[in-house]
Amino acid sequence: MTEMIATRQAYGDALVELGEKNKDIVVLDADLSKSTTTAKFGKKFPDRFFNMGVAEANMMNTAAGLATCGKIAFVSSFSIFATGRAWEQIRNTVCYSGLNVKIVATHSGVSVGPDGASHQCIEDISLMKTIPTMTVIEPCDAVETRKVIFAVAAYKGPVYVRLGRAAVPVITKKEEPYTIGKASILRTGKDLAIVACGALVANSLTAAGILAKDGIEATVVNTHTIKPIDRETLVNVARQVNAVVTAEQHVLDGGLGSAVASVLAQAHPVPIEMIGIDNRFGQSGEPDILFKEYHLLAEDIVLAARRVLERKKK
């Protein structure tokens, strides 16, 4: 049985490890530290943890101020508040100044579940990747999340890391290397490529397994870094298979799918089918029910694969 861990859990543990190694790490949260798991850091290093209350705009710029003094500031809240409420602070103060602020937000996507649409952020990838100089990362599991947190702490500049509330299968291994901006190929096949991020990577692997039973061989690419996107890997893979499915827990406008399409349209146009949320808000419900409702399941990816293969034939 595959181990199930939420990416946010790995975040809190990684922060504590980092905090022990590096005294310049500071963490800010907006009254959600138990949910984002930054409370673990706060308990261990109370002097370097700042609960800023329910005031995300101020939190973001306080982090910016700390960063101007050499601190590596991790800022956490739910995705919708971190990237939505504080968007202009991120754009005008954090990114325009080129500051070393790491926005690590949890509760992205419809997998937030019962809290409903107001708390299910499905626009954050788009909101963050449109800002010049911003790096945008969504790890696929808890093991990768730990590596991402260490990598972004070592990277100089603003980064957005997108994490989830719900437990997701652990599909990567501790010993595998991680590099920001370098997509990883989890499985190779000659017929099509499934390019995914976050929780949809596991579903893509499941879909590839289903397709294999019908003799269809799919490459699965974990595009953990959505910006800067790994053009080289995407173009190479597209040249080999000439059919692509993208999969993300995000609106189709401005997410991973559009980033992949933009690269391939310019470098090597191939048929693309996109799995994502199509111009709708989320709603209350358990994550598995919502994944079915919003067509984010492995079966949906399989259907998209069959559609793209039909188009490839023409």
Partner: peptide, 16 residues
């Protein structure tokens, strides 16, 4: 600090 968008400077000052 870069900016000019009103209302943001005091928060930055607090961080410093």
């Amino acid at each position: 600090i870069s900016g000019g968008s009103l209302g943001q400077g005091l928060s930055v000052g607090l961080g410093i």
